[in-house]
Amino acid sequence: MLGTILGSNTLLVTVLAGAVAGGTSILYAALGEVIAERSGVINVGTEGTMLVGCLAAFVVDVETGHAWLGVLAAAFAGAGLAAVHAFMVVYRGASQLATGLALLFLALGITSLYGENYVSSNITGFLSYKVPLLGSIPVLGPMLFDHDPLVYVSYGLAPATWWFLFRSRWGLLIRTAGERPEALRAYGISPASVRSAAVMLGGAFAGVGGAQLSTALTLTWSEDMTAGRGFIAVALVIFAGWNPLRAVVGAYLFGGAIQLGAVLQVHGYQINQFVLDALPYVLTLAVLAVLERRQNQFAPEALGQNL
């Protein structure tokens, strides 16, 4: 069966293109979570942060007709929800896990309530744009260069996040907040402020990921539409060893798993959809089981520890 998939050009191309399109929302959220966790704060409520981004982008697009304004709104909404997380865990010393989960449920409720009137709304949103020349390259063209603008933005964002974290002064401060917050304090900078900023930036990223899901990939809003993608993003950060570039690979792997299920069915392969559905999570568990010991050395030392 593997031979057929690789041998057939269309099969491979559909899976690869779908991996990128479907993986992008996860990628944004994962990049944001890398930044937050590098500062020492886990946000398991990323699922909820994405969800408010989905709705904010969709509503603003419906009301104004401007998809980019929607993205901006999604970033603000994501940052806003993350700000609550930051306040609770950084300034009030609340449990990071409990707060993240509570915020997830809050986001589920809020978006269900305020999104109800938008279920039937129609938007233009972001459409696919085929890049001239590059888009015509076999396999790579449809895989990478025939997508919505938010996919193209993410191509720049992953290396930019890497540069920001590992080459800029801001990145150094964030990483220090996650490794040795007391060193930061000795240096005269409040680790609380740095952590808050990092968590909010991460929330903004997750919000934009939500925007890609609602206003580019699916062009709809519906209750709980993230369907677990936020949790995948959190798991992905460990998988990627807190490295933004490796998060790209992981995100596309998950996007590809979803697309593979659909592609195999269309070609009539005897495959159990429920098994395919479980694949991304099995993969996460396998990666955690195999790599956890090795990955631990990459983990920020003060990750999950409140100040």
Partner: peptide
């Protein structure tokens, strides 16, 4: 008629993947 089961009553991301596969075919 080509069928894709998404295993969910409403997962728009999966629906997008299913639609893309069907259209590609």
């Amino acid at each position: 008629t080509y069928v894709v089961f998404t295993g969910s009553w409403c997962d728009p991301g999966k629906q997008a993947a299913a639609a893309a596969s069907l259209l590609q075919e």
